[in-house]
Amino acid sequence: MHISEGILSPGILVAGAALTAAGVIIGLKKTDAEDIPSVGIMSAAFFVASLIHVPIGPSSVHLILNGLLGLLLGWKSFPAILTGLLLQALLFQFGGITSLGVNTFNMAFPAIACFYLFGWCIKGNRNRVLFICGSFASGFLAVSFSAILVALSLYLTGEEFLPTAKLILLAHIPVMLIEGGLTAVCALFLKRVKPELLEGEANAS
């Protein structure tokens, strides 16, 4: 899902950096000093989750889980994803400094969109069907939306990227399904084992 260095046009890079800066500022405003260890640990947990490869046919895909992250952290997803991606750039050279803004926005904006769209489905004692549908939709749509944003940033760089952009969208269709299912099962698990994780954001904001 990363766009690496040197591909996007300067205009897109600047726009991505500006949007990410705005998102991170809002996210940090909503983060108290006491929240930092828990946001940091969540962000590390999602970093590790992104190293998990799930088999799909003969190949495998790695988890993204920005939908789940959005449900759990809300606006704090912006700084959490920014630090995660910065560390990926520094440790593995996935992505880099100039594409950091675009990449963060492409993943964090869908996360927050899902938080607003489906966050209410998983809070409190909603009925089970609504809970499952809401969490599936947030996993599914977060990845779809991210894939669309990635494809769009490539397409806006130049029309010659159109086939690449289409390929990216196509390749992510199975990932969307897997992410949706995983997010739903994982949210159900959290509700049974540690429901306060799902409620956390409601008390904080």
């Binding site: 799930v54 889980l65 099962v185 994982c186 994780l197």
Partner: peptide, 17 residues
Amino acid sequence: TYKTFAYLVGMLLVKSS
């Protein structure tokens, strides 16, 4: 497999928090 991985991620989040 997918269910197991979902529980794995869930457990990771619980332990981390």
